[in-house]
Amino acid sequence: MISDRGRLSWGLCVATLNRPDMLVRCVEHALAQTRPPAEIAIADASDDWEAHRGRIRETLAAATNGAEVRLVFLGHPEKSSARQRNAALTAMSADVAFVIDDDSLMEPDCAETIMALYDADAEGRVAGIAGVNVAGDDAAARAVAKGTALKDAGGIRRSARMRAAVRRSGLARWVLKEVLLQSRDRIFLRYDEPGTHHGRDTAAALALPGTRYTEFLPGWGMTVRREVALRELFDDGLLAYCPTEDLDASYRWGRHGVCLVAEGARINHVEAAAGRIKRRKVTALSLMNSAYFTRRNSRRPARDAARFYGLATRRVLAETLKDLITGRLSLPQARGAAWALVRSPTVWRQDRADLPDWYAGLQRRILAG
């Protein structure tokens, strides 16, 4: 829907589970934008989602002073961030969906910065735009002051210092990217044929100021033209916390337009602890999801199966090094990667039509283990 002033409209799209305090803060930050949302769509898989809906209604009434912001609050029967996001996207009507995590807090001018880029793209060649993560010492301190339990406040501070050190060292950047695989484009197996995606050439032709090209958008802070998202929904075969669902979805969005990062669109990704699953399971699911995405989408599965095993072997080494560097002597990430490497051949043996149902069962066993 186009707003009365002829500008594109935007809406907040959030999947949430058992984090009502964090969800309220996320919505408060969205409502405080210098360019306010037209709607807020939330899919909540919590048992007490109706109580959470009541809190969001109160937040909306207090923050908007009577301004019209449509609220869509869905109680979702399945704990699946991918399926929850799809439900919220389908129920929305705004032109652009801000698909962010419930622990992502947008700075006041974030939406205005991003929406100005969509408005400037009259031909609709931009499919999605990401913000930049400004979380660090300040973000952690603010979150702790508000009573939010962080996943690892000390780890966030150490990560900020490490990022600062990496920016000063070309060798460190290479090690992180090529050895430790700390890069989205190193852990995702591209299954589409070359030439089917909008890339750097499209981004260069657009020449939108304050942007840079990216192939993948981060799940904590991505936006997408809703018409594109409806053509390429999140993979509905994923359950629970879905590692790399954002990479798969935004990769497919690249079939319809270019993806960019807006350098001035700041988001504090707090990384609250509640709702997380263990490192071993996250790593196992991340690799198994990669095999699943490739089996489901690749037109050349034999070729891409071989490519997957090369990636998976590198992941086992990378996760082992990361565990040792950070002092996790039980090697949870390495064990998760090794488990996935050993069991992934079962993915390639599945008939494509039966794959989502079969994979749902496998995910349940991983999550229960």
Rank of each mutant, 00 (worst) to 15 (best):
T326I: 00
P20Q: 03
A340K: 08
G369C: 05
R352I: 09
S290P: 00
V342A: 15
G155K: 05
R328Q: 11
V126R: 09
R173W: 03
L285A: 11
S183T: 07
V347L: 05
R186A: 05
L150K: 06
E112W: 11
V224A: 12
C110W: 13
R335L: 14
V14M: 01
T320H: 10
V144M: 14
R280V: 13
G131Y: 08
A338D: 03
I56C: 01
H29K: 09
P345E: 05
F234K: 05
A240Q: 09
H29Q: 04
V126G: 11
A229I: 05
A160H: 14
R25N: 08
I114R: 07
G155Q: 04
A340T: 04
A334T: 01
T320M: 14
R25F: 03
K278V: 08
I129M: 06
T313H: 12
A111D: 07
R70A: 15
L367C: 01
R300H: 08
F293C: 03
R343H: 15
S46I: 06
L171M: 14
H269D: 13
V270Y: 05
T59K: 11
P209Q: 07
T34Q: 12
L12P: 00
A207Q: 06
C242F: 04
A318H: 02
L355S: 01
Y213H: 14
G154A: 13
R7F: 03
G131K: 10
R85A: 08
V224P: 09
I40P: 01
T313V: 02
P194Q: 06
R225E: 07
Q182S: 10
Y118E: 01
A139E: 10
A272P: 02
G275D: 09
A334I: 02
A87P: 00
G275Q: 11
L17Y: 15
D21N: 13
A165L: 15
R303G: 02
L181S: 00
G131T: 04
S250E: 02
K322D: 09
V282D: 04
E232C: 04
D119T: 07
A164G: 12
A116I: 03
V126W: 11
V270I: 15
V96E: 04
V224I: 12
A160W: 11
K177R: 15
A272D: 10
R226C: 09
R349K: 15
L60W: 03
R279S: 13
C13A: 03
L71W: 02
P332M: 02
A43F: 02
A139M: 13
I187L: 12
L150D: 10
D354Y: 00
A249Y: 00
T326P: 00
A15L: 00
Y191M: 10
R168I: 06
L180N: 01
A61S: 14
V69H: 07
A360E: 08
Q33S: 12
R200K: 13
M106G: 03
A273M: 13
L105K: 06
L233V: 10
M162D: 07
I277K: 14
H76R: 04
E50P: 00
T64P: 01
R364F: 01
S298R: 01
V144D: 11
R53S: 11
G170M: 10
V166L: 08
A203N: 03
T211H: 04
I42D: 02
L89M: 09
E28C: 06
A91Q: 04
R225F: 08
A360Q: 13
D4H: 10
L176G: 14
L189S: 07
S81H: 10
T214K: 10
S46F: 04
A149M: 13
